[in-house]
Design a protein around this nucleic acid. Structure first.
Length: 399
RNA sequence: GGAGGGGUGGGUGAGUGGUUAAAGCCACCAGACUGUAAAUCUGGCGUCCGGAAGGACUUCGCAGGUUCGAAUCCUGCCCCCUCCA
């Protein structure tokens, strides 16, 4: 399917890391890029102007949440998602497949649909590939996603294979619905939307290979890697990412879904990923965890009580340019809403600046140096250290 | 002066003979969060040893007493609150 408005230009490659440009009807996205998450048509606590000022080029909305509330037709009648949320740049919507994974007891997955109960009022709904496409056409995002089945880490091979097979069938059905039978209620928006496919396969190398090959055989303008960052080790996640990007076409954007943390973004870029989205920076910000170049800190900790200087002296975010770490700590302890906003501004600025720095490093052919100096400074969290120790211990024990 | 009520771990507040180192909430101290059911969740919170399991010791205004055993019962003292005068 030829969609000239969605051209991807690979500007430069340094090792496997890529710097490119992805065109959409609402403007171009310089990659590698991070998409802040606006599940319910808002980056929680921030205005679109603020999000633009942070350096975001594209944001992610969620078709499942917006389908339940306020409803796809409502958004459509109000002029589409861009106008509804006051964001006139590119938007990507997720299909709702991930909610079938994350909402546990409320859903049931069958071969041709996902059935779920609304977390809002308990009412029953179902998504088929065709409905997932229809919903996303109604919302009108620039990039829409195939319905897929994300499966938990630790599931046995048969279950992972089954989920992968469904994902493949659904991808074919989504492709057909979006590109081959456009006579839907929202036919006018469809040509202005790029549909991305999603690779699944858990952490089984052969399944991932198989999935990457199948999904990339569909003539789509971009390909995503799903089902990662769901509990597997970072080593597995990075290895799986590398294995998949190796088999995706070089001339199309690659999108690693649901990633990530600063260190994961650097590693994703190193494996040749172009697009990322993640709730982590903003969610964690609202819970008081802030990124610094030396690692993550909890701003509510006692050690910040008297810190008159900003959390990061050389950070150019609004919070660090105007307030002391002690003030941020105070806002969190006092449960003031400004604390949530300042923390979100800081974390998103940290991530978006990181992406810009990665892009510059690639263009200057110094990605490897950037990567290693980043990791030298950025210390993993206590929990990550504990996990790595456990993995080493299990590996040693297993021989 | 009279009548009544009450003093519990940082705060509040359960507990009225053993299952109580003492509920719950708050505060405090940490940790987690990856295609957002999240301004949420988890752990710790008398002292000492221990990674933990666990163990030792000291606690319920103060001092005595009854009892195998007391935050809980008795006596005295100190302090606080309410109402009446």
């Amino acid at each position: 399917m030829t969609q000239p408005s969605f051209s991807f230009h690979l500007r430069h490659q340094d090792g496997n890391a890529r710097a490119g440009q992805f065109a959409t009807p609402h403007g171009a996205v310089a990659t590698p890029a991070f998409m802040p998450v606006a599940t319910q048509a808002t980056i929680k606590t921030l205005t679109p102007d603020e999000v633009v000022a942070l350096g975001a080029q594209v944001v992610l909305g969620n078709a499942y949440h917006l389908y339940l509330r306020p409803g796809v037709s409502t958004v459509h009648q109000l002029g589409g998602l861009h106008r509804f949320m006051g964001w006139n740049r590119p938007i990507l919507t997720d299909s709702g497949g991930f909610q079938a994974f994350s909402m546990g007891a409320l859903r049931q997955v069958d071969d041709d649909h996902i059935r779920f109960r609304s977390h809002i009022d308990g009412s029953e709904h179902r998504f088929t590939p065709e409905l997932a496409i229809l919903n996303q056409q109604g919302l009108g995002a620039d990039i829409i996603m195939c319905l897929d089945q994300c499966i938990a880490y630790g599931a046995d091979r048969a279950a992972v294979e089954q989920a992968m097979a469904r994902t493949h069938r659904w991808a074919q059905a989504c492709y057909a619905a979006h590109y081959l039978s456009p006579a839907t209620a929202y036919a006018a928006t469809a040509p202005k939307q790029a549909l991305f496919g999603i690779v699944q396969g858990g952490t089984f190398p052969d399944l991932r290979r198989q999935s990457a090959e199948y999904i990339s055989s569909l003539p789509l303008p971009g390909y995503a890697i799903g089902g990662l960052a769901v509990g597997e080790s970072k080593a597995q996640m990075y290895a799986t990412t590398a294995l998949v990007t190796d088999r995706l076409p070089a001339d199309k954007p690659r999108y690693l879904m649901g990633v990530g943390s600063p260190e994961d973004l650097v590693e994703g870029v190193a494996q040749g990923v172009d697009l990322f989205d993640c709730a982590l920076p903003t969610r964690v910000a609202r819970n008081g965890a802030l990124f610094t170049k030396y690692g993550r800190v909890n701003i509510a900790n006692r050690r910040f009580t008297q810190q008159a200087t900003p959390l990061e002296e050389d950070c150019d975010c609004y919070a660090c340019r105007n307030f002391s770490a002690a003030y941020l700590r105070h806002l969190f302890r006092a449960r003031e809403v400004l604390g949530l906003r300042l923390a979100s501004l800081h974390n998103l600025r940290f991530i978006l600046r990181l992406m810009a720095d990665l892009r510059q490093a690639i263009l200057a052919n110094r990605f490897a140096q950037f990567r290693s100096s980043f990791h030298d400074a950025y210390q993993p969290t206590d929990e990550t250290i504990r996990r790595q120790q456990k993995e080493r211990w299990l590996a040693a024990r297993g021989g």
